[in-house]
């Protein structure tokens, strides 16, 4: 895997990167204000539909879920245990599980998944050049946009390096079998150090390579091979996103929709 982008021709792939960014920018605060687990489950369902409609394979959804799920479950458990709310359902030793705690925990876990999926919908369907172009057209200085693109581009590279480095550690006699938790983290530490060192080296070389290819040359405006432009359809998408966002805001702040983890409507 060289980047997150999954080639495709779906309407989501063809939508302007800025539209997709708008969706992320609206959905993240949206997901943050909604508290009811069912509403968040609904959001997950909508995202799932969008993934399917974009023709993204189920393995991609699963990859995101698999990465986020452990954190999601952990937050869910911690919330349910440490923030009791409302009537108790179950008492196990010192643990008091409450309806409110469970609902809040579930909301937290689902929210995290939904946020990740909404960001990855954007990343999976947009080429990194598109992401950078979008950011720059939204007013981000070009070097910053490039940084964002490079950061995304290098995540998989970083993971590959990390794999090689842990291989090298094992080849040096590090036995990871039967070690877990803190001990595992401690023995893997040298690997992280090596990863940092090799990343610094890579970034230094990358900077030089960019300069050698005339990055930051004075007195010229860079041109683009594939520029992006809003099509009429993109305005429609944007309008739809704005309408949904407005409707949610109205329902939420006027009618209290999804404001309480236990009741859909007050």
């Amino acid at each position: 895997m060289v980047e997150f982008y999954v080639p495709g021709e779906s309407w989501i792939h063809r939508a302007d990167p800025r539209v997709k960014f708008a969706l992320v920018a609206v959905s993240i605060p949206g997901l943050l204000i909604l508290q009811h687990p069912l509403v968040l489950a609904g959001a997950l369902l909508v995202l799932n539909l969008l993934y399917t409609s974009a023709g993204l394979p189920a393995t991609k959804i699963w990859r995101v879920v698999r990465t986020i799920l452990p954190v999601s479950l952990l937050m869910m458990a911690l919330r349910a245990i440490f923030y009791p709310l409302g009537p108790e359902v179950l008492t196990v030793g010192p643990l008091h599980l409450t309806v409110g705690g469970l609902a809040q925990g579930a909301a937290l876990g689902l929210r995290l998944l939904a946020m990740a999926l909404s960001i990855f919908l954007w990343l999976f369907t947009t080429q990194s050049q598109g992401i950078v172009r979008g950011m720059v057209k939204l007013g981000l200085p070009y070097p910053w946009g490039l940084s964002v693109g490079l950061a995304l581009r290098f995540i998989p590279t970083l993971r590959e390096s990390y794999e090689t480095i842990t291989q090298a550690q094992r080849a040096r006699g590090l036995d990871l079998e039967g070690t877990g938790g803190l001990r595992r983290a401690r023995v893997l530490l040298p690997g992280f150090v090596a990863l940092m060192v090799s990343s610094f080296r890579t970034s230094e070389n990358l900077a030089r390579a960019l300069e050698a290819r005339a990055f930051g040359a004075r007195g010229v405006r860079r041109s683009y091979l594939a520029d992006i432009a809003f099509r009429p359809l993109d305005w429609v998408y944007l309008l739809l996103i704005a309408l949904v966002a407005a409707a949610l805001l109205f329902l939420h702040f006027r009618l209290g929709f999804g404001a309480d983890p236990l009741r859909l409507l007050p």
């Binding site: 390096s161 090689t164 480095i165 291989q167 090298a168 550690q169 094992r170 080849a171 040096r172 006699g173 590090l174 040298p190 690997g191 150090v193 090596a194 060192v197 090799s198 080296r201």
Partner: peptide
């Protein structure tokens, strides 16, 4: 690793200390 050692292609991937 006691019996079979492996020197990686890129030294930077196996220097940790």
């Amino acid at each position: 690793a006691r019996q079979v050692g492996y020197v990686f292609q890129n030294p930077d991937h196996q220097l940790f200390c």
